[in-house]
Simulated scan of single mutants.
Amino acid sequence: MSRLKNFIKHSDLIGNIYFQIMRCILALLSHVVSVRSKQILLTSYSGRQYSDSPKAIYLMLKADPEFKDYTFLWGFQRPGEFPEIPENEKLSIDSFRYFIKLLQSRYWISNTSIERLIPFKNAEHIYINSWHGIPLKHLGPDEAHLEFLPRNWYRKVSFDLLLSSGQYDHDIFKHIFPNTKQIKITGLPRNYELVTTSDHEKEAIKQRVVQQLGLDPNKKSILYAPTFREYQQVAGHNDFKVPFDDDFFRRMNEKYNFIFRGHYFVERTENSDHIFDASKYPDLNELFISTDLLITDYSSLVFDAALLEKPIILYLYDLEEYRKLRGFYRDPEELNLPKSYSQQELEQQIGVSLSNTYELSIEHEFNHEYNQRLDLDYKAIKSLLKK
């Protein structure tokens, strides 16, 4: 199924045909499917996960007495992988029934495209999108080689509310989503946990992660979370090769728990036998909380992790290639964070960043530059859901 979806998505001709057919089908269905005023449909990362800001919003609404008589539905690629969601709330996102339920639902909540890259929302639908991070790399109209389906979606999608963390991402979203009705600096719901969890709760989370991943509790933990490189697709699969050799892994594993978290688009990971693979771990915030250092590159999660004001290193081993093929809104070399360009430099910087004398002043400044709203404007979300 994933290869078929990639084929449709990455072919302009097939993507255009798919779009025209689906648009006609959905237009016809919209005349016979009635919208239910108290039904909310949610997805996270196009149905791959139960996570991120849609999950945070869902849990807030479920705990709010004003929404006790609302129906909640989740779209998943593999519904059976999420036993924590009641069976009557789960849908297969690749089914015809999913589109029927989407048309029925007055409220849509997602962090990517809930409508499977077919922008068809009508006037009765309320679409709230949290996006999935503060953009560092180019998106949508600024991607040089973006295919028809996503390019068309960025141009035409109409969010009623798009959430942002500060003026920086607010202005980028205004550019890449020109039909959005309202962009509001609310803070990202997924990050509320990072700034409100107590030290006692954090310690309990750390112990749980250590146990579930089989980590050594006497070692410090490093989280390596690189972004997606769409130009590395091999035979229709999204692959990622972990860019370290065996000697590096051996030295790291002698001192630390070295944890890998792959991007949600990555289907296959090469050279990951020597590390703890937490790509399927259900809660990224728990990984942030329980580790001592983040290594990333061009990923937006650098802005989320900064909320904890722990050491961060940008590993920019392929910067020139990524800059040429994808591009940035803000060049990583301009970010006020430690940077490494080779394994040797990275290993040295890890030692510095995890030393007892390391000062976190630059992480503090970086956090407050991009995360201008550290609380959460739940009222802005709730007001639309009561509209």
Rank of each mutant, 00 (worst) to 15 (best):
F148D: 08
V234H: 09
Q77H: 09
P243N: 09
E193Y: 05
Y370D: 05
K181L: 05
R330S: 09
I275W: 13
Y281L: 05
S2Y: 12
H125E: 09
N356Q: 13
I57L: 00
L194N: 07
F72C: 10
K101H: 14
S2A: 11
S2H: 12
L188R: 07
H145E: 15
T196D: 06
F99L: 12
G236S: 05
Y256D: 02
D292L: 01
D318S: 10
R326M: 12
F265L: 14
Y341T: 10
F159Q: 00
E193N: 05
K310Q: 06
N271I: 03
D199N: 14
L346Q: 07
D292K: 00
K184L: 11
S355L: 06
R250Q: 14
S279R: 04
L136A: 05
V352S: 12
Q344D: 13
K324G: 08
K174H: 08
A144E: 15
H175Q: 15
Y58K: 07
S158Q: 14
I362K: 14
N285G: 01
I126R: 14
I8A: 04
L102T: 06
L163M: 14
E321T: 15
F148K: 00
P338S: 12
H132P: 01
S11H: 03
F76G: 13
L325A: 12
D375S: 15
R373I: 14
Q211T: 12
I205S: 01
S221P: 02
I312W: 00
T296D: 01
K324L: 12
K181H: 04
T186A: 02
E115I: 07
L354G: 00
I8R: 09
D199T: 10
H145K: 15
E201I: 03
K219I: 10
F288K: 00
Y107F: 15
H263Q: 06
D247R: 13
D246P: 02
D331E: 15
Q344R: 09
I21L: 13
G15A: 08
F67E: 04
I185A: 07
Y370W: 03
A63P: 03
